[in-house]
Amino acid sequence: MKSWIFLGIAIVAEVLATSALKASDGFTKLVPSVLVVGGYAIAFYFLALTLKAIPVGIAYAVWAGLGILLVALIGWLVFGQRLDLPAVIGMTLIVSGVLIISLLSKSSAH
């Protein structure tokens, strides 16, 4: 269970860092740029801890899937970026895959 919490922390840190990357305006704004570097450092540290118990393929699938969904959500809420129906369907399929892996796969550490 602790490994899944670490993965959750890694995902949140990565999503915040990626969102700050957009706000950094090509690393021309100091505060968002510092958030990018710090967020990615935290994300990779906790991902490394996660990989002690969860297989890399499973951890990365969950990381990427939830990261895509959360970054798209922040893009919509914070930056006013719109998603069309194919994008929503695609993200729904990604989240479905993450849930199947996390809840049903024997490859995953439960």
Rank of each mutant, 00 (worst) to 15 (best):
I11P: 00
I11V: 01
V12E: 04
V12K: 05
A13E: 05
A13W: 01
A13M: 08
A13Y: 02
A13G: 04
E14T: 03
A17V: 05
A17R: 04
T18A: 08
S19L: 07
A20F: 07
A20R: 00
A20N: 04
L21E: 09
L21R: 09
L21V: 07
K22Y: 04
K22T: 02
K22E: 07
A23Y: 12
A23W: 10
A23Q: 13
A23V: 09
S24I: 07
D25R: 15
D25M: 14
G26V: 11
T28C: 14
T28M: 12
K29T: 12
L30N: 12
V31L: 14
P32S: 09
P32V: 04
S33L: 04
S33N: 02
V34D: 06
L35D: 06
V36T: 06
G38D: 08
G38L: 15
G38S: 12
G38W: 09
G39C: 08
G39F: 05
G39E: 02
G39M: 10
G39R: 05
Y40A: 03
A41I: 12
I42H: 10
A43K: 01
A43P: 01
A43H: 00
A43C: 07
F44Q: 06
F44C: 09
F44L: 12
Y45M: 13
Y45S: 06
F46A: 13
L47M: 14
A48E: 12
T50Q: 06
L51N: 10
K52Q: 15
K52R: 15
I54C: 03
I54V: 13
P55D: 12
V56A: 15
V56K: 13
V56L: 14
G57I: 11
G57M: 11
A59G: 05
A59C: 07
Y60I: 06
A61M: 07
A61H: 02
V62E: 02
W63F: 09
A64Q: 10
G65F: 02
L66A: 02
L66N: 00
L69R: 07
L69F: 13
L70D: 04
L70N: 04
L70E: 05
L70W: 03
V71R: 00
A72F: 01
A72L: 03
L73C: 12
I74T: 13
I74E: 10
W76N: 14
W76K: 14
W76S: 14
W76H: 14
